[in-house]
Design a protein around this nucleic acid. Structure first.
Length: 874
RNA sequence: GCGGACGUGGCGGAAUAGGUAGACGCACAGGACUUAAAAUCCUGAGAAGCGAAAGCUUCGUGAGGGUUCGACUCCCUCCGUCCGCACCA
């Protein structure tokens, strides 16, 4: 490059700090409190303050920031807040392992991470920041809890937990490894505790039905997974009389829930859960059964473990009488794959038409009677081997049901059950109530008091918040709140007698179930502020990880309904639109002795099959492993700070938005980051060259333009159109590709025209360059701001309205369409956009390439799709 | 085990109301600039084959089948990878 200025490198780290200061000083991203503008609530899932931000955060917040900045430019009053999901298990682990108080650990992490996020140049309104561990936040959550309690949306009930007998503590499923506590190594037991629940099942049907209205706004997979999670199934309850043992009256009939009551004549056994009252009753007098149940307990509480376990049963010797064939008696087993939490915790087994039942029947030698004949199958020869048949068909071997279809048979059985009073049509849900009790310190205290005389007493509102004691010890096993010397001892607010506080804290999913509302009025004296809510909710676009597809998003949906029932909000659904991003993945590296190495500790040479890695520290060879999700355990992490310090935040941001579609996983590679860094420099240089031209600012209507200038304008306006659409559709990678094409076009124009006047090229270059700067603004905001200044403006780019494309420049008069012969492309045709079918056909048939491909065969048909394609069929 | 998604050159990806597959970028090769290197710019390229060249032919979107004038796109079967499974967040 000829000029000295144009060859100067853009010093991103320095300029980024400058612009961040300018934005902060001017309060550029402060949300307007009172505004006539339309609102836009842009939210990304807030982070858990684990220590330092990771690339997943960088991705999440970059994706959101692009929209937030774009919407701001589009004239919206944007709410784009940030806070901290600050309660949770890792803080307590740190307390145990490093003897740091959870609060200290958490707030130090928050300080670190806040500084890191600020270095990313996000357009956040930091004045609304809060942490969920702050009593100013959780006081409102306690109030919500009490309101839920009043409405019976919160209640106490029994639940099974993983109990570590050595650590005297409840374990999370992820803390149970192969049936043992992760810290103590002790065999984990199951204990039944009285726990707090939220009554999410009260809204099961509503939560399910509302999903239908999310089409196009929520990812389909999230909707499907939530549907499956709620798991509505309509079937029937059915009572079986029991024989063969002295059973108390309550246990003498066994009720099951089934969705396949049509297959009742194929029933060959009964199975009940190890936790079923009948199991417990029988085990009291049967040591072998008690041992079996004990064995089942060791499988754990997770559904996954239960499903993977080998199916086992224990014959109780009790028999169940078939409701429609009194002579048929079915043995009752206790089986490890029957879950107490679903239906009634008991089933009848029909091996021919259910795979699990079939596996069980084969194992325990129960008969397999087919009762549904597949269409076209021969009744005489149809048999079940090792695969159950769960398809459609006609009933056989089923007395009065024979010949009926499945639905008709279900209907008949259900009617009979109801007539005889031994069952009924029933809708069942897989969804269970939300267990919110946690026997942990670092969570929101549940604000109730247990009194011997008055029972459960809510803490009076004027005594909220119930704050966590600061002086806690983590050296003893168990819940620190429980063995704190004074904290739990209080007087009953009702009778004044000594009483104890609830020492359970809330699941941290509660904290994140309503934070989206708190941002709209973070300092309000009540949980929410009506006026602020009215303007801001719902969240217009929520962005976060796929792993939250069910739990977090479903809980927040439930909580919103609960808050509506308790008059804290007026809407049902918190998130109008949801987007789930992919994860950030990276290669893994292992030294000879199997230790994992960080990417920064490895030197890579060569490429393809020749690619080799060595340890920088030792010079020894390193094995390059598969590409996996970035994780501390695999050490395949790249610290965002290092990237920002070296290349600048814009490079990290550009890397995030180029190439990979936001919803797919993105592979972090050093080469691609360096590539993004080069693009930053390229744009910077380009703008310098344009600025040096001192071309007129493109105010008013364009001068008369030569063909090159006209072409450049078309390219620029098409890019503007594509980029706008790509941002709105969260397909940034497509927009970035357009931006690169635009930079090429501008560069080519710059190289072409020197001192030529009258063709308006300088004018077009100037216009294209300004558009380019505006288009990259949401993605690489610091660079864009810098370029805007270099183009001679003393305004902030962040305050500029988003440009509008000239529609006339978006459509070409001449277009190229493909010409096929028998479906194979043989040529192309440049033709007027408005060409008729006949014109296109005639033009195509005249082509020599078409004649040649036809090889003299007569044309039978010509398919013409105007503006797209012509296909000559011979 | 159950539920859900994804699969396109060496790599990330583009093209979906079924209509020119491989835009754009990375890596690579050649060239320009340079004493040299870095940086930068230009050019090339899916694979195989034919041709001196312009160019032409065939094959190609995880595998196999189907629908269609035409399939990355729709349907069926299979394979692989990833995510969730209720106390991680």
């Amino acid at each position: 490059m000829s000029s000295t200025k144009a060859s100067e490198r853009y010093n991103a780290p320095v300029r980024e700090k400058h612009w961040q200061k300018v934005w902060e000083e001017r309060g550029t991203f402060r949300t307007e409190e009172r505004s006539r503008k339309p609102k836009r609530y842009q939210l990304e899932m807030f982070p858990y303050p684990s220590g330092r931000i990771h690339m997943g955060h960088v991705r999440n917040y970059t994706l959101g920031d692009v929209i937030a900045r774009y919407m701001r430019a589009k004239g919206y009053n944007v709410l784009h807040p940030m806070g901290w999901d600050a309660f949770g298990l890792p803080a307590e682990n740190a307390a145990i392992e490093r003897k740091v108080h959870p609060a200290k650990w958490t707030y130090e992490n928050i300080d670190t991470m806040r500084a890191q996020l600020k270095a990313m140049g996000l357009s956040l309104d930091w004045s609304r920041e809060f942490a969920t561990c702050d009593p100013n936040y959780y006081v409102h959550q306690q109030r919500l809890f009490l309101d839920f309690l009043k409405k019976k949306l919160a209640y106490r009930g029994p639940a099974k937990v993983n109990w570590d007998p050595v650590d005297q503590t409840v374990l999370a499923n992820e803390q149970v490894i192969d049936g043992r506590g992760w810290r103590s190594g002790a065999a984990v037991e199951q204990r039944e505790l009285t726990q707090w629940f939220f009554k999410i099942t009260a809204y099961a049907d509503e939560l399910l039905r509302a999903l239908d209205g999310f089409g196009g706004k929520w990812p389909d997979f999230v909707r499907t997974q939530q549907r499956n999670w709620i798991g509505r199934s309509s079937g029937a309850s059915m009572k079986f009389a029991l024989e063969g043992g002295k059973l108390p009256k309550k246990l003498a009939t066994l009720e099951v829930f089934t969705t396949r009551h049509d297959t009742i004549f194929g029933a060959s056994f009964m199975a009940i859960s190890p936790e079923h009252p009948l199991s417990t009753h029988l085990a009291a007098k049967n040591k072998d059964l008690a041992a079996f149940i004990e064995e089942c307990r060791k499988i754990g509480t997770s559904e996954e473990a239960l499903a993977k376990a080998e199916k086992k049963g224990f014959d109780t010797g009790i028999l169940a009488v078939h409701p429609f064939e009194p002579d048929v008696k079915l043995p009752v087993y206790v089986a490890n794959f029957i879950v107490m939490g679903y239906g009634t915790g008991a089933i009848f087994g029909c091996p021919a038409h259910d795979q699990r039942d079939l596996d069980f029947a084969r194992k325990y030698g129960r008969p397999v009677i087919p009762v549904v004949l597949p269409p076209g199958a021969d009744r005489a020869t149809f048999a079940i081997s090792d695969e159950a048949y769960d398809g459609d068909g006609t009933l056989i071997n089923s007395k009065f049901l024979d010949g009926l279809g499945i639905e008709a048979a279900k209907d008949k059985i259900a009617s009979l059950l109801e007539e005889r009073g031994i069952g009924a049509r029933k809708v069942n849900y897989r969804l269970r109530d939300w267990l919110i009790s946690r026997q942990r310190y670092w969570g929101c205290p549940i604000p109730v008091i247990h009194c011997e005389t008055d029972g459960i007493v809510p803490v009076p509102l004027d005594q909220l918040p119930v704050t966590l004691p600061k002086d806690v010890a983590f050296d003893k096993p168990g819940n620190p709140l429980d063995h704190h010397p004074t904290w739990k001892h209080v007087t009953c607010p009702k009778c004044g007698q000594p009483a104890v506080r609830e020492t359970d804290t809330m699941d941290t999913f509660v904290d994140s179930s309503w934070y989206q509302f708190r941002y709209t009025a973070p300092k309000a004296k009540t949980p929410t502020d009506k006026r602020a809510l009215q303007y801001w909710v719902p969240v217009d676009q929520y962005i976060g990880g796929k792993e939250h597809a069910v739990l977090h998003l479903l809980y927040a949906r439930f909580f919103t309904r609960g808050m509506k029932a308790t008059r804290h909000v007026a809407i049902d659904e918190p998130f109008a639109s949801v987007f789930t991003q992919g994860i950030v993945v990276h290669e893994t590296y292992q030294s000879e002795n199997g230790d994992w190495l960080m990417p920064s500790e490895v030197r890579i040479e060569g490429e393809g099959a020749q690619r080799k890695a060595t340890s920088i520290a030792t010079g020894r060879p390193v094995t390059i492993g598969p590409i996996e999700k970035m994780s501390k355990s695999r050490k395949n992490v790249v610290d965002p700070d290092d990237i920002i310090a070296h290349y600048g935040a814009d490079t990290a941001r550009l890397f995030i938005v180029s190439d990979s579609p936001p919803d797919r996983d993105i592979t972090w590679t050093e080469a691609s980051v360096a590539g993004a860094g080069r693009q930053i420099q390229r744009i910077s240089r380009l703008i310098d060259q344009v600025a040096e031209r001192r071309a007129p600012k493109p105010n008013g209507s364009p001068p008369s333009l030569g063909p090159e200038a006209e072409e450049l304008r078309r390219t620029a306006h098409k890019a503007l159109n594509t980029v706008s659409q790509s941002i709105e559709g969260l397909r940034y990678n497509v927009g970035v590709a357009q931006i690169y094409e635009l930079t090429h076009a501008i560069q080519a124009a710059l190289d072409k025209s020197v001192d030529k006047s009258g063709d308006g090229l300088d004018w077009a270059i100037r216009e294209a360059a300004e558009l380019l700067v505006q288009l990259v603004g949401p993605m690489v905001p610091h660079l864009a701001e810098d370029c805007w200044e270099r183009l001679g403006y003393n305004t902030l780019l962040a305050d500029q309205p988003w440009p509008e494309p000239d529609p006339a420049l978006l459509v070409d008069d001449q277009i190229t369409i493909a010409v096929q012969v028998n479906g194979k492309r043989r040529d192309e045709l440049i033709i007027s956009r408005s060409a008729s079918k006949a014109d296109i056909e005639a033009a195509a048939l005249k082509l020599e390439s078409v004649t040649r491909a036809l090889q003299g065969k007569p044309v039978t048909r010509v398919i013409v799709v105007p503006q797209r394609i012509v296909n000559v069929v011979a």
